[in-house]
Design a protein around this nucleic acid. Structure first.
Lengths: 333, 333
DNA sequence: ACAATAAATGAGAACGTTCCCAATACGGAG
DNA sequence: CTCCGTATTGGGAACGTTCTCATTTATTGT
């Protein structure tokens, strides 16, 4: 009943605990095959199981990585998490998933745990912490998503600016010039960048920017709904609307239906993220697919890399190019 | 740079490490307020941070709980996970999330980690392991979902049989007697139970069971699509279809559209799970909402309970009653 | 057959806490 | 003034590994 330790195994096999330890850790090269077998047998007979905690105390590594995301319920993150997990797993690491809920206090509490030596690394989509706070953890880390304020840290995300451009260009090519923009506002800088992308595109195409066409709101379906109603009741409503994410677009679609506006007949509509739901509405939504799994995977790869070769890299940044998913909600003017 | 330990804090504050340890653990009752302050100050000045690993080695607890689910990408689980996490968090525990992918080997690997002493408890939706394997871990555990083969272990889930009954009754009351059933097949016993519920209901209502109305398939959208086509091309197609989950229902809806069958005009359609997507299709889908967050929360509560009062409980089982969500896809015959 | 090298093993000190028990200090009662 | 209970503190042994050396045993070349 009392749990069996390496020492008892050693006694039972008639060797020293050092030898048992070597066998456990798979350091076969330096232990005689026949004693190895004897030890193995002792392990099986006694039902020995290694105490990972004790090992970690000595080696200073836990083979566990903490992944901090704002919210698992949000459809985007689970797939990223899967990428992280799969990449870690084949390298013998375990993923620990936690949510910050965009709350500073939770985020800090989680980081604190990491500092306590429980994790060998952190992959985080930062909600409110600063680069300094992260660096202070003295633990290898990788940033998820585009964040301009973390110059020193590895980063992997999606090139949303490029995504915006893809959508706008698609609408432009369909003949649209009056393009509304329902822009989600997040805690960090992402959404302003999107507005910039929009502005730039318009400038590049020599389209005058109509302030009323740009609406900022939170990322909820009802916000998309409200925004769409607002856009459609302008004296001169846009002929196409780009919503900052699919949830907003779904809300917008609902508004259009209520107003009797045919999509894409009277107005084209496009979203971003390519969540599953956007493929089951009627009409199905044109949107931009971001890399999710791949982002998670790459983040894990970067992190493991850092963990293994401690020093002196320059920070690496990867933004994956998103792809346009053309569906039914966009059409010629 | 070298990390500062309890000993250096002790030196710096001019006390013994025992005293520092007491302060760290918040055992304030047995340390003089003034020395306490001195220790606190030393901690701050040196930037001391407790090494959780070392502590765990001694106390034999890590305050970490492993949650094993088949797949985070599946819309159902994230919310359960949130429930677990929130309940654990307020009790000072951390959730570690891992996915088994319904693979026996992964599941076993995860359990093995738990046996290694890394976790104080397990909450699991078992894919392939047996009760014995779980009990062998000698760690408090809770089963997620309905599983008949775990009599000795606490369990919390949804009463899907009741859910099926709710849907069927709803359709019955709308006048439907010819009810098709697209039944998902899972690795474990759940789906057979659903067929039983269906059979029982039909028997209770004195409706003769038409074998052709019952189709078994995997839980993919395309499977729902195929099944619906099959049902609708029978000589005497059903006037209502109940799909085992929303994904199947969405596939079925697509098939109906292609066949020009109006929903709910010519055929009613209902799903189960109440995933977000089922609220954005046209028509929106009638479905059954299961408790997700609550299930996770309750599982965590049970587990903590077990952890705290080691011995001799009888196993507890809770099945939450699901609720019918009436939407547009069901109507009078 | 002997030295030199390589392979296999063992002994014991870390790792940084917590826990048990002994030691000391401080009051108040007798 | 002494004794005893209580409140604080300190000392050192766990906890179960891994790691560094030293030691023993086998192997090779001459």
């Amino acid at each position: 009943m009392a749990k069996v330790t390496i020492i008892e195994v050693a006694k039972h096999a008639g060797v020293s605990k050092s030898t048992v330890s070597r066998v456990i850790r798979g350091e076969y090269s330096s232990v005689n095959p026949v004693t190895r077998d004897r030890v193995m047998q002792a392990i099986n007979e006694l039902g020995y199981e290694k105490n990972a905690i004790a090992g970690s105390l000595r080696t200073n590594e836990t083979k566990m990585i903490m992944l901090i995301i704002p919210d698992i319920v949000n459809a985007f993150w689970p797939e990223v998490a899967r990428g992280v997990q799969d990449a870690l797993e084949i390298n013998g690491y375990t993923m620990v998933l936690s949510c910050s809920d965009w709350e500073r206090s939770k985020e800090q509490r989680l980081l604190m745990q990491a500092r306590n030596g429980l994790f060998d690394g952190i992959i985080i989509n930062p909600a409110s912490i600063s680069e300094k706070e992260l660096l202070d953890c003295k633990i290898p880390s990788v940033i998820l998503g585009y964040h301009e304020f973390f110059p020193e840290i590895d980063m992997v995300g999606n090139d949303t600016a490029r995504g915006t451009e893809l959508v706008l260009n698609h609408l432009y090519e369909l003949g649209h010039r009056k393009i509304g923009f329902i822009c989600g506002v997040s805690m960090r800088s992402t959404s302003n960048r999107r507005i910039n992308s929009y502005m730039e595109f318009m400038k590049k195409k020599d389209i005058e920017i109509e302030r009323d066409y740009i609406l900022q709101c939170h990322y909820g379906q009802e916000n998309g709904y409200d925004a769409m109603k607002q856009l459609m009741t302008l004296q001169e409503p846009p002929t196409a609307v780009y919503a900052g994410n699919d949830i907003l677009a779904i809300g917008a679609l609902k508004a259009a239906k209520e107003l009797g506006i045919s999509i894409p007949g009277s107005c084209s509509l496009a979203g971003m993220d390519d969540i599953y739901s956007s493929s089951v509405t009627s009409p199905t939504l044109t949107t931009v697919a971001k890399e999710k799994y791949k982002v998670g995977w790459q983040a894990a790869v970067f992190l493991l890399d850092r963990i293994r070769s401690k020093e002196g890299f320059i920070p690496r940044k990867i933004l994956f190019p998103p792809t346009l998913v053309k569906r039914e909600s966009t059409g010629n003017i």
